[in-house]
């Protein structure tokens, strides 16, 4: 079966009546709802902390939780483009920046917990931990790479950097891969969870790669434009 027939079938299954683009008002409402939803994990942690209910190892609990939500929101952000590629819908892309910044927000909470609550800003211990333990090193690299993306996430920087902005933001793929490796290397023996997220990431990246190559072959500029 050729690619375009696949695409067409997929569209028919996925879309139905939903293929209609939601109105401006609805898009804004969804944005507010998403914003509040993304805040829930952090508010939950705050609530649990106030009630002294963060398990026997509260610091590890916060590290695990913020780490998980960083990865989760990152994967959610990365799934917006594949949705476009598979269904032709584009309106969901408007939430990409907000989701990306929430990923950065949870990454910051994660790193702050590590530096402050876990290591009490003891830089000798921290540097030793980063250098000597592979999963920490990979995690640190991933976090440092998110900094330029967060800094350049505003409209001004997009205008200033133009084509370079796009290239710079390809870093998000590296960050995601490092994030999954960070999780994978942290786990002692039960690899089910990190492997699961690794597979999701692989699927998201594979979709992009597939469309990228099928486009260059058939010389189509953008698959979602062809009807």
């Amino acid at each position: 079966m050729r690619a375009w027939t696949c695409e067409k079938t997929f569209k028919n299954i996925m879309l139905g009546n939903l293929s209609k683009v939601p109105g401006k008002k609805l898009i804004a409402q969804i944005k507010v709802a998403l914003f509040l939803l993304c805040l829930v994990p952090s508010l939950r942690l705050l609530w649990l902390a106030i009630n002294d209910d963060l398990s026997a190892n509260p610091i590890e609990f916060i590290e695990r939780s913020t780490g998980f939500w960083t990865l989760f929101i990152l994967l959610a952000t990365l799934s917006l483009s594949p949705i476009r590629l598979l269904t032709g819908r584009t309106w969901q892309l408007q939430y990409r920046r907000m989701l990306g910044l929430f990923m950065f927000f949870y990454a910051c909470l994660h790193v702050t917990t590590y530096l402050w609550l876990d290591y009490g800003f003891n830089w000798t211990d921290i540097i030793n931990d980063v250098i000597k333990h592979n999963y920490v090193l990979v995690g640190t690299a991933a976090f440092l790479l998110t900094l330029p993306l967060a800094i350049t996430s505003n409209n001004l920087m997009i205008r200033l950097l133009r084509e370079r902005w796009k290239k710079l933001h390809y870093l998000v793929y590296i960050i995601a891969i490092l994030g999954v490796i960070h999780f994978l290397w942290l786990v002692k023996k039960d690899l089910r969870e990190p492997v699961f997220y690794g597979l999701i990431l692989a699927l998201l990246l594979a979709t992009r790669i597939y469309y990228h190559f099928s486009n260059t072959k058939s010389n189509k500029k953008t698959p979602w434009k062809c009807k």
């Binding site: 026997a56 190892n57 610091i59 590890e60 876990d118 211990d125 030793n128 931990d129 000597k132 333990h133 592979n134 999963y135 290397w185 942290l186 002692k188």
Partner: peptide, 12 residues
């Protein structure tokens, strides 16, 4: 290779 062994977190 995975964890810091020079210090520890005391549970509780």
């Amino acid at each position: 290779p995975r964890w810091t062994q020079t210090s520890e977190k005391r549970i509780g």
